[in-house]
Write a protein that binds this DNA or RNA. Structure first.
Lengths: 347, 347
DNA sequence: TTGTACGCGTTATCAC
DNA sequence: GTGATAACGCGTACAA
């Protein structure tokens, strides 16, 4: 024996059987709601009482060995410290727990290698399904995932081809709302400092930007459109810095997300510009505390909790009926106007 | 068979054995680093090759059934959406994963019932240990936990009696720093709007407040000391509101934590008072984005990541050597001065 | 050095 | 309606 401690022994099916004076098989049937009807009511009651008096808890490990299911699902998140994700994890957890599943959460750190590792670790833990929101996910990893035959649900990103179920906000429509908001305020020189275009999120928001500009009858100046390598504050700062340095005339800024918008705040401040007096900024996500920033951020809100509840729902669906076709759920975003945007010339 | 899908069949020990033309037992030995020395080098190599070619992954479920260990640890967190916790979860995860453990994370929502449920669910999943930071944890639940014999580590709270290991910041010293900072700025009418006194966190911070006041040679006015029922924004707002309504003269405010400080901002604003012009506010925790608030919050920072890394370390310790005495690790906090505090009369 | 055999706790499939 | 038995995948005494 290695010098490691096991867990304290706890009551097993057999212990209950002994106490109730029935066969272990009967105990199994009596305790499982699915099969309880197969057993005499009195016997069942006796078994249940015995189980309770012993504080019996079925061992999911043993059960999993037999049923080939772990009642565990993996949740891949790029970065838990991004305030965007915790509410999300909550949504998933709430729904899954109530269906008897336990989520296994992993930070991929937007690192491909870690992503692959985490996925493998989850497979090894016999997860029954995976929900993933990792950003760097390329087709390589996804193909690998598909190959495993595991039910998988994508969150916040959609794949046109693959047979993945997905739950996401309508990013394009959200960005469109942001642009129209700026246009209504009289802005015409509107920039888009977006996220990576390899990500559906980044691409759709850019498409929404284009759509909004067209709808408002505004021309898109290529000099005002730039894409970052990540949806982070530093990237937003870098992009904004470059934009300002270029001397381009800008009065409105549609950032890829709230973190990038925050980065823009920093760049503006460094240049002695003020938001919204000199430049209006609109974010995306309505992340927690965005109402607390200085100035409070005008942003596009998306129903995070709902998205993840939907993702959990989709996963349950696919785990129960793997042969049904994949579904894509798209939820509507909405604009939250705060103090980082104001009418042009309204200083 | 119920209408549920199992996981796709994957290679088992036996498959590897067949391919390598040895007995399954030999495969087990060859693949386990601990026992590899018992097997012929050539055979081992053949086995390993076979395993790789089949993409074999040992089934932790089966392994756990045998070894009575799951290589899984539970992490109980009060509220993942409090930005305080995610970095923390990261710290734990990083350390545990590198030791081969997978964390099982649960939100207790500061709800006793949920807390108990989550703990039970973890026990059922055969976790090898538990790290808990839940606030409402009373002795009842803790006793129950002790009764199970599971290795348990407390985070951010210490229990004088129980034989629990714990990792926490020196809350008292932190609050002392906050008070001394205000005193140095010339404030003499300093209030403490603290958290629940049933929690060691709340109590220690109050003690630190008292210590700091004494050290600064200031009198403590009971009318300026109030405790909330929770470490939340609304509670901070309620307390501050009441304090202001009482007409007490105050110029400095030491809040129970950053969230409560934020609540104070709201109460001040509603009364037409300005921070720091009229009242200086100091928070606790230096939670993410506290530098982004309006005004940026002066607060006591604690080494979150370190605390949780330490917690992970302690848990590993206790899992490997359950008979060693429990240890309490206390880490030093430090002050982060921003714009929510200023010298008295310096408006 | 390797094979054998059993058991971990549970469920499924038979009999009875 | 219930009992007996095998099997899930792996680890490990014990025998060879």
């Amino acid at each position: 024996m290695p010098p490691v401690a096991g867990r304290p022994a706890s009551a097993t099916l057999r212990d209950v059987a002994r106490l109730a004076e029935v066969h272990p098989g009967t105990v199994s049937r009596a305790l499982n709601p699915e099969t309880r009807r197969l057993v005499n009511e009195d016997t069942a009651r006796r078994v249940i009482e015995a189980a309770e008096s012993l504080g019996y808890r079925p061992n999911p490990i043993a059960r999993g060995l037999k049923t080939n299911r772990s009642y565990t699902v993996g949740v891949l998140v790029p970065d838990l410290t991004n305030p965007l994700f915790p509410p999300i994890v909550r949504g998933i957890q709430d729904r899954l727990e109530q269906a008897g599943y336990t989520p296994l959460i992993a930070n991929t750190d937007n690192d491909r290698e870690r992503e692959r590792n985490d996925f493998e670790a989850m497979r090894a833990r016999q997860v029954d399904g995976v929900i993933t929101a990792t950003a760097t996910l390329d087709h390589g990893v996804l193909d690998e995932m598909t190959g495993t035959g595991l039910p998988i649900v994508l969150v916040n990103r959609r794949l046109e081809d693959g047979g993945f179920s997905s739950a996401a906000a309508d990013d394009a429509d959200g960005e469109r709302l942001a642009v129209l908001h700026l246009a209504e305020l009289g802005h015409t020189r509107i920039a888009h400092l977006g996220g990576p275009q390899e990500l559906s999120t980044g691409r759709h928001r850019y498409e929404g930007f284009v759509a909004g500009m067209n709808e408002a009858g505004l021309a898109i100046d290529p000099a005002l459109v730039h894409f970052g390598n990540a949806f982070t504050g530093p990237e937003g700062e870098r992009l904004c810095e470059a934009l300002l340095a270029s001397g381009a005339a800008v009065t409105g800024l549609a950032a890829g997300n709230d973190l990038m918008a925050l980065g823009c705040y920093d760049a503006l401040e460094r240049r002695g510009l003020r938001c919204p007096d000199d430049i209006s900024v609109v974010g995306f996500n309505d992340m927690p505390f965005s109402d607390r920033f200085d100035p409070p951020l005008t942003t596009v809100a998306i129903p995070h909790y709902d998205i993840w509840a939907a993702a959990a729902e989709l996963l349950l669906e696919r785990m129960l009926q793997p042969d049904e076709p994949a579904r894509a759920i798209v939820l509507p975003p909405y604009l939250v106007v705060r103090k980082s945007s104001r009418a042009l010339g309204d200083a």
